[in-house]
Write a protein that binds this DNA or RNA. Structure first.
Length: 216
DNA sequence: AACCGTCGCAACCGCCGAATT
DNA sequence: CAATTCGGCGGTTGCGACGGT
């Protein structure tokens, strides 16, 4: 029995999809919680948002993951841990849910990883929740030149010490703290750093980035 | 054909931080 | 400034599809 304002759950119907699409066409994305108030859709805002992002959004790619996509996901997961939304943001057309599902059902097996609680940031611990999804204050302390795609937002310094060192230190900082604001740091291979830097430096939809290169 | 176990994915849940009141 | 609401995230669940016996 469904009372008047009870919210529906479970799989979406074609009609519900249509109502949601119509709403978004007129009002745009966002304001998800308003949808139930202004339409006949008996769905909570969260459910609407999820349905749009994971299924209805025209940018969503369906079908099997290519080898390139899998490789990218594996490398990004290695760097970021279970930060599915960040990973998905670098895999065009794929949503965080798709990436997460694909990881749990295919890649875990492929890589022989036992399912369990892999905490955020498997190899980059300080890219954990503390940093959230807006890694604005990231510093990379490196002994080699930053990639050539550094743009105006990036301040680069030429490395001067120990060029034989093939790893670099990645550190994240807390926002606007005055002293000793370095949270933690860890070492990355040059390959992974290149991946990470291109990942972080390319403009994301809604994130702004500030990067500071500093030599050790 | 019927049953059963496994798989894959869509959707839900609970938590958290940001924004708003 | 506190309380409330909202949006976003990662973990988990439920169920239909599928394959093996």
């Amino acid at each position: 029995m469904e009372s008047k304002n009870e919210q529906r759950k479970g799989p979406w119907t074609v009609e519900e999809d249509r109502i949601l699409m119509d709403y978004i066409r007129v009002h745009g994305k966002g304001k998800w919680s308003r949808i139930a108030k202004t339409t006949d859709l008996k769905r909570c805002g969260k459910s609407c948002r999820l349905r749009w992002i994971n299924y209805l959004s025209p940018g969503v790619k369906r079908g099997d993951f290519s080898e390139e996509e899998e490789d990218l996901i594996i490398r990004l997961h290695n760097l970021l841990g279970n930060r599915w939304s960040l990973i998905a943001g670098r895999v065009p057309g794929r949503t965080d849910n798709q990436v997460k599902n694909h990881w749990n059902t295919h890649l875990c097996k492929k890589l022989g990883i036992k399912k369990g609680k892999t905490k955020v940031g498997s190899s980059l611990p300080s890219l954990s929740k503390k940093m959230g999804n807006n890694p604005t204050n990231v510093s990379l302390e490196s002994n080699f030149e930053p990639p050539s795609n550094c743009n105006g937002e990036t301040e680069a310094k030429t490395a001067t010490k120990d060029d034989s060192q093939s790893m670099c230190r990645f550190a994240s900082t807390q926002e606007a703290t005055t002293e000793n604001n370095c949270e933690s740091s860890f070492w990355l291979s040059k390959d992974d750093l290149n991946l990470l830097t291109s990942f972080l430096m390319e403009p994301l939809n809604s994130y702004s980035h500030e990067f500071v290169w500093d030599c050790l």
